[in-house]
Design a protein around this nucleic acid. Structure first.
Lengths: 197, 197
DNA sequence: AGCGAAATTGATCACTGTCCAATTATTTTA
DNA sequence: TAAAATAATTGGACAGTGATCAATTTCGCT
């Protein structure tokens, strides 16, 4: 067939992305299938590939969208002007993951095939989240130590990520940890204190 | 056919496990295939399933074996009696992952299907690694704070895990971090210092 | 109405894990 | 030793997957 009257190419891309996102949230990375997305929106498999190029790139697009929602949720909470901004940072990181476990895990379950590059847009989004953290760290650090903020931000994101990943995959439950987020926040506070915050 | 003269059941299980481990190290979780393991050892797919029950359980067995090697490597380094035991702990955690990226990542790439339980042996192995960390923390903490060691161990393992995961998946490279292990060690030291070490 | 460009299809291919009836080898029994 | 019972092994069948691309259909335009 040819162009359908009810969808421009851009709209179709958005439609596939939205349904793909829904499916990913529902079944998770391992059970995600491009065929199922096609079935749900009433298109054929071929169309998905024509629009997104590969299963890989569709997953990347879905993960990028998740990343955007995640960063937006964090920003919204910070923009409400809380007193303890560091706590809000950690809590909003965790709560998004807890509320959208399949979407959050899909970001880290996915590995790019050898040779494939992360699109520029994705890089910016990822750097953006770290940038948000960096800005908050700068607020808390004495001005003469602001130069350390970037490295601290990367390391603290990794710290919180580790706690979050263990919480969602059940590793912490196995080890008897009851408050992963509290532990993460405590670690972040120690580091900031040591850095002069 | 019936029993082959050259392999008892236990030997066959060990053979499959060894070849599976090799394949996992070679191609990683996503490209791992039970059929390929069968082909390499000269048995048919059916045999793999008869011995291990499912693809899932084979992967779990492989990951358990990886876990054992990992813990052994860490223990060997600690038993050499280094002066800075905490540094050795973090370094040996990292170096095993760096030297066996596919095996290490497979541990975390794998998710148990709904309803499936982690075997008791695996639980013990995982608890064992945390136990090793806990023992080292106790050595460093003032005796009156030894009660906090278990919770600290869980949290510090998560911290190091986060840094290690970001290092291996390229997230850190994307963000410009050049010394993930150094950052992890710094975080661990801060936490231990704050806890009175 | 006719044309060319764009969009869409779905059969086909090579692969996966799972299942299980049939087959074959080994042990045990008579 | 021969027959029966047990154990191990096979590999075809099935329902999936992502990828590919010649053929088809529909659209916008003249």
């Amino acid at each position: 067939m040819g162009r359908r009257s009810d969808h421009s190419r851009a709209e179709l891309e958005a439609l596939i992305l939205a349904e793909g996102h829904r499916l990913m949230a529902e079944v998770g990375y391992a059970r995600f299938s491009a065929r199922e997305v096609a079935k749900r929106i009433g298109y054929s498999i071929g169309t998905i590939h024509n629009v997104f190029g590969s299963h890989n790139r569709l997953v990347m697009a879905i993960n990028s969208h998740t990343f955007t929602l995640w960063a937006e949720a964090m920003r919204a909470r910070l923009d409400a002007g809380p007193a303890d901004r560091i706590a809000v940072l950690v809590e909003s990181y965790f709560s998004f993951a807890a509320e959208n476990p399949n979407l959050w895990m899909a970001i880290y379950d996915h590995r790019l095939p050898e040779g494939e590059q992360i699109p520029e847009r994705d890089r910016e989004q990822r750097a953006g989240l770290t940038g948000m953290v960096e800005a908050e760290i700068i607020r808390v650090l004495p001005p003469e130590r602001a130069g350390r903020a970037a490295a601290l931000a990367r390391s603290l994101v990794a710290t919180v990520h580790g706690h979050c990943a263990f919480a969602l995959t059940g590793t912490f439950a196995l080890l008897g940890e009851e408050d992963p987020m509290g532990a993460a926040l405590a670690r972040v506070r120690e580091t900031l204190a040591a850095a002069g915050g």
